[in-house]
Amino acid sequence: MGVIANKMGLQVNPTAKESIAKKINTQKNNIVYDTKELNLWYGHTHALKNINLEIHEKEVTAIIGPSGCGKSTYIKTLNRMVELVPGVRTTGSISYKGNNILGKTMKVEDLRTKVGMVFQKPNPFPKSIYENIAYGPKIHGIRNKKLLDQIVERSLRGAYIWDELKDRLNENAFGLSGGQQQRLCIARALAIQPDVILMDEPTSALDPKSTLKIEELVQELKKDYSIIMVTHNMQQAARISDRTAFFLNGEVVEFDNTNKIFSNPSDKRTEDYISGRFG
C-alpha cells in the first residue's frame, strides 16, 4: 500500500503513509476511469447516452452488447481515438486518475502513452518485428539501442511471445500468423509501458486456439495492467473478466461483477441477451 503513496511522491513517515494509503484505498480506491454522464454524437446520431461507469484498476472489465450498441465507441472514447472520426461531439466527463480526459488541457498524445490499445484486426506495421515493438519507445524519443533492445525483449516476454520470436526479430511482421500478429500488437502496446490496455474485440479475427492464448495472456496481464475489453463473445467475457458492462442502444443497461451479470442479472434485457434471445 505504501507503493501507492510513494508513486504520488508523498514524503511521510511509514505509519502515516499507511493510513494515507488506506484512505486513498477506501475513498477512490482503484478507480482508473470514472465516466460521468457521457454523451456522444456522430453528427446527428446519438451514439452514447448518459454513460456512467467506474472502471477499476488491475481488473479485466468486459464490455458486451449487440452490434451498434456503442461499446466500441465507448472504448475508443477512453483514449480519444474516437476523435479520428470527423463530426464527433461529446458532453460529460471521463476522469482518468482524477484528470478529465475530455477537457481542453489533456493532450491526447499524453493520454495515449498511458493507455495502450489493441485493435480488432491485428495491425502490425509493414516493418520488422523488432521495429514494430521499438516504434512506440522511438516516437517517445528513446534512441539508446541497448535500452530499445531491453524494451523489445521485455515487451515480447510480457506478451509471452518472446520464445517464438526471439530468433526472428528482423523478419517482417506480416510473415507471422494472425494470432502471433495480435500478440505482437499486444507486445507493441506494452512497449510504451501503459497503465491501461484497451482491447477492441481483440480475438474476433482469430481462430479458437489463438483466442485461447490471448485470453490466457489477458489473465496474466491484469496483474500489472487495467484491461478494458470489448467483446462480442459472451463466453469470453464470462471466462476472463472481473466486471462486465452490458451496453444496449448506446446506454449502459447493467454494470456489475461478472459472476452476478452471468448468474443473476438484475435487468430483464441483460438476461435476454446473455441467454441468447437476441444479439
Binding site: N79, M81, L84, V108, E109, D110, L111, R112, T113, G116, M117, F119, K121, N123, P124, F125, P126, Y135, G136, I139, H140, C185, R188, A189, A191, I192
Partner: peptide
Amino acid sequence: PGHLAEASYGMGATKWQ
C-alpha cells in the same frame, strides 16, 4: 490503410510522427 495510422496514434504518436 487507416488501421496503420490508428496503431501509431494509439501509442501516443503525433500526427507528424
